[in-house]
């Protein structure tokens, strides 16, 4: 009878001690907008386009899983609101005209700001 009372109390105290112990651990969070995380070079953020290198081969358009994200006619158009940042286009561009950047804060009030459109040489 007494044992059935003591056992749960013992376990509860063990749990509480674990919680207390965690209070003294080092901080794991980051105050985000003020402090930012240091990103690795591999990080896949916004795609950057270099028109001087592009040869208009359209391979990037062919490998892009989000269809319609890249459109190449007279201009090179990329719609970041559709892009899933997989970097397939960067990997398969034969001339290295596309690069990944570490930019990831793309939220905006205006959808048109997310469409990048530039003429090709």
């Amino acid at each position: 009878m007494i044992k059935s009372f003591i056992y749960p109390i013992k376990e509860l105290i063990k749990g509480l001690l674990t919680v207390l112990k965690n209070g003294f651990k080092e901080k794991v969070t980051l105050e985000y907008p003020e402090k930012k995380k240091i990103l690795n070079n591999n990080f896949r953020g916004k795609i950057k386009y270099d028109k001087t290198k592009c040869i208009k081969c359209k391979i990037c358009q062919r490998v892009c899983p989000a269809k319609g994200t890249i459109e190449i006619n007279e201009t090179f158009k990329i719609n970041y609101s559709q892009c899933i940042f997989c970097a397939n286009c960067v990997e398969f561009c034969p001339k290295g005209a596309l690069k990944i950047t570490k930019e990831y804060e793309l939220a905006t009030n205006n959808k048109n700001e997310l469409i990048f459109n530039e003429g090709i040489n």
Partner: peptide
Amino acid sequence: SPLFYTFIEREKILNIFEDLTGSRMMYN
């Protein structure tokens, strides 16, 4: 509380994945 404790360890794994693959969850 357990949610916060498990996320401490999970965060370490996701950071490793981010440095290895470039993304935290959609690895490709």
